[in-house]
């Protein structure tokens, strides 16, 4: 990470209120630009007529219940691979329930029940032949509050690998270094890998949790308000990290912070009262929402 890149990202994140990244002018795609760029921003011109590059997660008419109360109503959406998809909406709108449905974390809650389908690479997550342990190794998760284990930094990152049966010390060392590097934490901790993870700062702990999730080599990373408990500097580092991670991972992030959604995501889904109100490219959602409710929410009229 060079200082200049960091500087530029920091300046967008710390100036508040900052404009969404793609409105800042540096990267707005033009129709006649190269194929690479066109593929990245294929939907920029016609926000709601998607010709997706590749759909990683495909949600079809998904309902979710806690006991008798229905908390998600007929959600259908396509989440593209190697992109950041943000889920926004007021508290209690079901966005957290939805993200936790993707790796079936809600299974832990008694009396939770789902109908419809969430397909990952064409396989139904809720299908009878899905092994939930395998699923969760493929779909990593980072939580709102950083939750390192009360072990060393090394052991935290090694945990997923060790329960997966990896014992080879050299291999472990290698993956742990790579994961910590990817989570932009390696330089801060490399000299004290065997010190307690509890001694890290809040932002460092959250990046450790990201490294821990990356270590088991997931394809998808779910982030449930990963920066909501952090100060602005730590938040900007997490955002910067998310931006980098999308080269290798499909990322779904729940956030309360609309500027954050605007800064980090390619696609944004707006949830309200358990329904998906609108789903489109992030700049379309923020600049040109189709639905009145979306407009009211993103302009801060309620929420």
């Amino acid at each position: 990470m060079t200082a200049s890149v960091l500087q530029s990202i920091r300046s967008t994140t710390l100036e508040s209120p900052s404009p969404p990244r793609f409105l800042a002018g540096e990267k707005v795609p033009k129709a006649d630009e190269g194929a690479e760029l066109a593929q990245d921003f294929v939907s920029a011109r016609t926000p709601n007529e998607q010709t997706m590059t590749e759909s990683k997660i495909s949600v079809r008419n998904f309902d979710f219940f806690y006991g008798a109360s229905k908390v998600l109503h007929g959600i259908s959406l396509e989440i593209p691979a190697q992109k950041v998809t943000a889920l926004i909406g007021p508290s209690g709108c079901g966005k957290s329930t939805f993200i936790r449905s993707i790796n079936r974390m809600n299974d832990i809650i008694p009396e939770a029940r789902a109908t419809g389908a969430i397909m990952i690479d064409g396989q139904d997550v809720y299908g009878g032949d899905t092994d939930v342990v395998e699923l969760r190794r493929k779909v990593g998760m980072v939580f709102q509050k950083s939750n390192p284990f009360p072990k060393s930094i090394y052991e935290n990152v090694a945990y997923g690998l060790k329960i997966g049966g990896m014992r080879n010390k050299r291999q472990l060392d290698e993956i742990i270094e790579r994961s910590l590097t990817r989570a932009a934490l390696w330089h801060e901790v490399k000299d004290r890998l065997h010190a307690s993870a509890m001694a890290l700062s809040g932002g460092q702990q959250q990046r450790l949790c990201i490294a821990r999730a990356l270590a088991v080599d997931p394809e998808i990373v779910l982030m449930d308000e990963p920066a909501s408990a952090l100060d602005p500097l730590a938040t900007s580092k997490i955002e910067e990290l998310i931006y980098e991670l999308k080269d290798n991972y499909t990322i779904v992030i729940v956030t309360h912070n609309m500027q954050q959604a605007a800064r980090v995501s390619d696609r944004t889904a707006f949830f309200m009262l358990g329904k998906l109100i609108e789903y489109a490219d992030t700049n379309a959602i923020f600049m040109n929402p189709k639905e009145k409710m979306t407009e009211d929410y993103v302009t801060g009229r309620f929420g």
Binding site: I108, G140, F143, G160, I163, V216
Partner: peptide, 8 residues
């Protein structure tokens, strides 16, 4: 949750 999310 942290453990479950890592495939425990």
């Amino acid at each position: 949750e942290a453990a479950y999310a890592l495939g425990a």
